[in-house]
């Protein structure tokens, strides 16, 4: 045990730099012009949802894939890995423990990435507003493009939210990733305020 203690003393970081990349994210500017428009259009019409149900709201996402609601009409599909998905739906309340995972997954997504807050809990804590373990405002931890309020919002509401998100993307306003990179220290400070045992680099590539 003393050995470990001594090692920690010498090493300031609480993670192994050989195991993790500790670079910080950078803003990637938009290219102006028609190409960016084209890309935006493609992004809006090919939203791949990260299949990560963070809370009870994810039960409302299942019907979306069924014949009744069928979001594949809009080119949307669930994707099991954050590397390949570009839409992250935070479905309902986020406890601190889940928030840690949310942040990691969000950081592992690639640059044009969009976040949708599902349910009141992501807006202001909802019915868990006074819980010792549930965050109140998601946008203090990761940039959020769209909120869909309700407890729970119905799939129709979600689809309306998607339409709204697509509009934002096409207008070029859904720059959450760049915003996160720009205000990285603020976000990180907020995250670290609630996540106290942060044993990884600041940014999870």
């Amino acid at each position: 045990m003393t050995m470990i203690g001594e090692e920690n003393k010498n090493e300031k970081k609480n993670f192994d730099t050989e195991l993790f990349c500790d670079a910080v994210p950078k803003e990637v500017p938009r290219i102006n012009g028609i190409i960016q428009k084209f890309y935006d259009w493609a992004q809006a019409n090919s939203l791949w949802i990260l299949a990560f149900g963070t809370g009870c709201g994810s039960i409302e996402m299942r019907p979306l894939y069924t014949a009744r609601y069928d979001i594949s009409r809009f080119g949307m599909a669930p994707r099991p890995t954050p590397r390949q998905s570009n839409l992250f739906i935070i479905s309902g309340y986020a406890s601190v423990k889940t928030l840690k995972r949310i942040v990691r997954s969000y950081e592992q997504m690639q640059n044009p990435k969009f976040v949708m807050g599902l349910g009141s809990c992501t807006v202001n804590g909802g019915m868990y507003w006074d819980s010792y373990n549930t965050i109140n405002r998601l946008d203090h931890y990761i940039p959020v493009d769209t909120y869909v309020a309700g407890c729970m919002p119905r799939p129709e509401a979600l689809i309306a939210g998607f339409e709204d998100l697509k509009k934002r993307i096409k207008e070029g306003r859904a720059e959450g990733a760049n915003e996160y990179a720009k205000n990285f220290e603020w976000y990180k400070a907020n995250q670290k305020k609630v996540i106290k045992d942060w044993d990884m680099p600041d940014y999870n590539w």
């Binding site: 890309y39 493609a42 090919s46 014949a67 594949s72 009409r73 080119g75 390949q84 690639q110």
Partner: peptide, 25 residues
């Protein structure tokens, strides 16, 4: 499945989308 499904040109959109991704690891 009884769904409408994506448009037939959806693979092109997907291709353009991944080409438009700005970062990579």
């Amino acid at each position: 499945h009884g769904r409408f499904g994506p448009p037939v040109w959806q693979p092109y959109i997907n291709l353009v989308k991944v080409m438009g991704v700005r970062t990579a690891i």
